[in-house]
Design a protein around this nucleic acid. Structure first.
Lengths: 205, 205
DNA sequence: GCTCAATAGTGGACTCAGTCCATTTATTCC
DNA sequence: GGAATAAATGGACTGAGTCCACTATTGAGC
């Protein structure tokens, strides 16, 4: 069983944490690159045994996505809080922007800025993509339920994927903007606007 | 060195081929599922040694994408053939649709239809999307050059990603439609239209 | 025919990610 | 002092992917 982040009342207390392993891993990735860093090295530096890594992360590449993993949950909450009478795409956009408000200039996910430095790897891209798919699926079910269409409906799927993709584009552009980047929200707004615009028109027809 | 598909004049002739390994692999995937099939089993059935597999494919999951490998090149060609005076997004859309015309009802990439049957796991789904990610970069540079904007421009990035994502959505919906699916083109058209519409408006402003 | 270069296939050893399971350790509740 | 619970560990195992040296089969030039 993968350890949860909240320590329960009973049982042996944690010696370790996702964050400790994350820190150790990021250090090593910067020093040696992603591919050359083994899980054994990570756990050694964190002062635990190799197997403990897999108590906290299902795979090596998952170490990048600690910060992002709650975004899915937050997005789900925000999406279900959208008032029923709001236009679908506009409501969805608002939900995205609300979640993005949590990301100030300092809260850039590590992987976005350090990807080049660690010799970003196919494996890493792949793990990013699976996050993408997970987010897209949250959006997809929301759209399907609001539009009263099956979640396999082509336009629903297209809209969900396009929204998610635009979000990633915004995050990349934002991270790439350097120290002057400011908040994520304006980037996201500009990226989502055309997509929402286009699909809102498609859905009212 | 990964073997090329054209047999050169000199040297030992091939005993094997990408297609032979592909066939053997697909059979086994259907029989046992993707995860339970080892490369050793694939090469045994194809009558070659394990190492030969890696002469033809860099990784197990690459066996799915033989058919898709030239799509990037074709898209690049079609994009550069777009007349200069066409509106950017409309021209891009046409190029996508032209490439898609190559995919009739029978030419469904195997993986798209058999995904469920082989116990489609995350690795496979993800390897699908990462193929398309390469396409996003082709689109991105085309848009940037036509719009005379840097390829890092937020809207350019967003448009490229959104187009690619809509394409994936179309391909999935098409494959999921079963034997009555018909051609890919109409699915793609419906998925791309809203995205192109939205960004065309954004870019003229 | 012989030799040479080129290319395909093979064998074997190796590293490391990820799985599995049994065992130990630390803690709380009773 | 148990009993229950949960974290950490040790060790064995599978399989992907890498590396490299070696063999096999061809065409070309002589």
């Amino acid at each position: 069983m993968v350890a949860q982040s909240t320590t329960p009342a009973r049982g042996r207390p944690r010696l370790s944490s996702r964050e400790m392993l994350e820190d150790a891993a990021f250090e090593l990735f910067l020093e040696q690159g992603y591919a050359k860093t083994t899980i054994e090295q990570i756990t050694q530096r964190a002062g635990v045994s190799r197997n403990t890594f897999f108590n906290y992360f299902p795979a090596k590449s998952d170490v990048f996505w600690v910060a992002l993993d709650e975004v899915g949950a937050r997005l789900r909450r925000e999406l279900s809080a959208v008032p029923d009478d709001a236009p679908v795409m506009a409501g969805t956009r608002t939900a995205f922007l609300t979640v993005a408000d949590g990301f100030g200039p300092g809260a850039v996910p590590w992987i976005l800025t350090q990807y080049e430095a660690i010799g970003g790897n196919n494996e890493v891209q792949v793990s990013a993509v699976s996050r993408f798919v997970a987010l897209a699926s949250v959006v997809r079910f929301h759209l399907a339920s609001r539009l009263d269409l099956p979640s396999t409906h082509p336009e629903v799927l297209a809209a969900a994927y396009a929204l998610t993709a635009a979000t990633i584009a915004a995050a990349q552009a934002w991270a790439a903007a350097g120290v002057t980047r400011g908040a994520l929200t304006p980037y996201l707004d500009r990226a989502l606007a055309p997509v929402c615009d286009g699909f809102e028109r498609a859905f009212v027809l």
